[in-house]
Amino acid sequence: MTTTLALESGYWSSLGRGVGAIILYALVGLALMLIGFFAVDLTTPGSLRGMVARGLPNAVIVSAAGMISMAFIVVLAIYASAGKLSEGLIAAAIYGLVGILAQVISVRVIEFVFGIDIGAVLKNPEFSTEALMVAAAHFALGLVVAVAIL
């Protein structure tokens, strides 16, 4: 007795399109997260990349929050595209770039209003609660931008 696996017509092409979409969105998401990281790096005193590489806790916390907030934006751009790959990729890229700009400016304003010396906070080898405030600002602004996409 043999068992035959019955697949719907077009199954493999649909699967291929899905795998292709995953790869393309992952590349756009990665590019946006890197651009976002370097935008934060450029607007903070010192080398954020170097501070993260040295394992400075405040730099790691702030950077991680920035990455998570960028992921929110990309995820909601994908969701809002309703399965249309080309529109979703374009929307994710544009919303991501606008989100990066909005975050960098907004977080710097929050740091100024609260009197946070972000350079000193990031360079501090000890955990600082101010890093949580800046991380929360990144996280919150990522949510705001992401939901604005809908």
Rank of each mutant, 00 (worst) to 15 (best):
E126G: 15
I22T: 12
V60T: 12
L48R: 04
L56A: 06
L85T: 15
E111M: 07
A131H: 00
F127H: 10
A59T: 07
V144K: 10
K84M: 09
K123A: 12
F38A: 14
G142Q: 00
A140L: 15
K84N: 15
A102G: 13
L132H: 03
L42S: 12
K123L: 15
A71M: 14
P57E: 06
V147S: 12
V109I: 15
I90F: 12
L89C: 08
A93R: 10
V98M: 13
T3C: 11
M1N: 08
G46I: 00
L32R: 04
L76S: 06
I100N: 01
P125C: 14
L27F: 14
A137S: 09
L24K: 07
L7W: 07
E8W: 05
Y79W: 11
R49H: 13
Y25G: 07
A64C: 09
F139V: 04
V75C: 05
S86W: 12
G55N: 15
A91E: 09
M51I: 04
F37K: 06
G36R: 07
R49A: 13
Y25T: 10
L143V: 06
Q103H: 07
A31W: 02
S14G: 15
L48V: 08
S47C: 11
L34K: 09
A91D: 09
V145F: 00
S69I: 07
N124V: 01
A136H: 03
M67C: 08
A26F: 12
L15M: 14
P45V: 04
A82G: 10
I118S: 02
F139R: 05
E111G: 02
L30C: 07
P45Q: 13
G16K: 14
V28Y: 00
A71S: 09
I149R: 01
G29K: 01
V104K: 02
V19Y: 09
S63V: 03
S9R: 08
L85K: 13
R54V: 10
Y95L: 08
A77Y: 00
V144M: 12
L89I: 13
I100P: 00
T3E: 13
I105V: 11
A137T: 03
L143R: 04
A31I: 02
G10D: 11
E130F: 03
I110E: 08
I35E: 01
T44E: 06
V107Y: 03
R108I: 09
A92Y: 03
I61H: 02
A82L: 10
G96R: 04
R108L: 14
V121A: 03
F127R: 13
F127M: 14
S14R: 15
A91P: 03
G88T: 05
Y79M: 14
R54P: 04
P57R: 13
L150Q: 13
A53H: 08
F127T: 09
F127G: 06
R54I: 05
A53G: 05
Q103W: 01
G142I: 00
I68L: 15
